[in-house]
């Protein structure tokens, strides 16, 4: 049974990334410097702590990462970083593109962070309690409710339940004066590539790997209904 699951698991990764076959993930031992570096990437570069906690800091959308190494096997952690949607269908966690060695670093850190020496455990099912798969929302309002409202608030007032755990307040999409200065393309780009590229909070993740262009456009259109505003005149053509 274990063998079957391993093969299945690996093929899922291959199917979505085209990456070289990897039978399993074995965390590498990390130096103190490498651990510090991993913490830096998790907290200060990538969006991870927008949703997850690590050592008491971070959002409440996803599970706490502080002791994830006790709760999940290394290959699961690796796979979730590498391709969350395939590993755990239905999750709101979007895939964040990063170089392979960085996936390896973060997975090694998370797998071993709380249980050094016990990180390279066996593989088992990606999730023992698969979520009930519901139909993915197709319109902007539905997508917004599922993916955005937890931080930005259902009405775009920046008051989602997760907002208080973020170092930078989420953008208030209902703020017509601020939003009327932003072109639709800028909103598109921010959703696609995350807050980092706009000089906003890097804890706003990039959704470009899970949303189609049409979905992002529908989200932008929904945001325009929240602010009841249009983009600047110069951007309308």
């Amino acid at each position: 049974m274990m063998r079957t699951v391993t093969v299945l698991f690996t093929s899922l990764i291959l199917a979505t990334t085209g990456a070289p076959a990897q039978q399993t993930f074995v965390p590498r031992p990390l130096s103190a410097f490498a651990r510090k570096k991993a913490e830096g990437y998790l907290a200060d570069r990538y969006a991870c702590l927008g949703c997850h906690q690590l050592n008491g800091e971070g959002g409440r959308i996803g599970p706490d990462l502080t002791d994830v190494g006790r709760r999940r096997p290394p290959s699961y952690i690796y796979a979730m970083i590498r391709d969350p949607q395939t590993t755990r269908p239905g999750t709101v966690m979007p895939r964040q593109l990063m170089p392979p060695d960085r996936v390896d670093l973060l997975a090694s850190y998370l797998a071993g962070a709380s249980a050094p020496g016990s990180a390279s455990g066996p593989l088992f099912l990606p999730d023992r309690d698969p979520p009930a798969l519901t139909a993915e929302p197709t319109n902007g309002a539905g997508l917004y409710a599922k993916y955005c409202a937890s931080c930005h608030g259902a009405s775009g007032n920046g008051d989602g339940y997760n907002a208080e755990f973020l170092p930078v307040p989420p953008t208030r999409h209902a703020d017509s004066s601020a939003m009327s200065l932003r072109p639709d393309d800028t909103l598109f780009d921010g959703i696609h590539a995350g807050g980092y590229i706009l000089g906003k909070s890097h804890r706003m993740p990039a959704f470009g790997q899970i949303f189609s262009s049409a979905q992002i456009r529908s989200l932008v259109a929904h945001i325009r209904t929240l602010c009841r505003c249009e983009q600047p005149v110069w951007a309308r053509r």
Partner: peptide, 20 residues
């Protein structure tokens, strides 16, 4: 995202941010 590109003229230098 740190992914290598074909060269100095590769559009992804820009479009990885300006995806629109």
């Amino acid at each position: 995202y740190g992914q290598p590109l074909a060269g100095r003229f590769a559009n992804e230098q820009c479009t990885s941010c300006h995806a629109s």
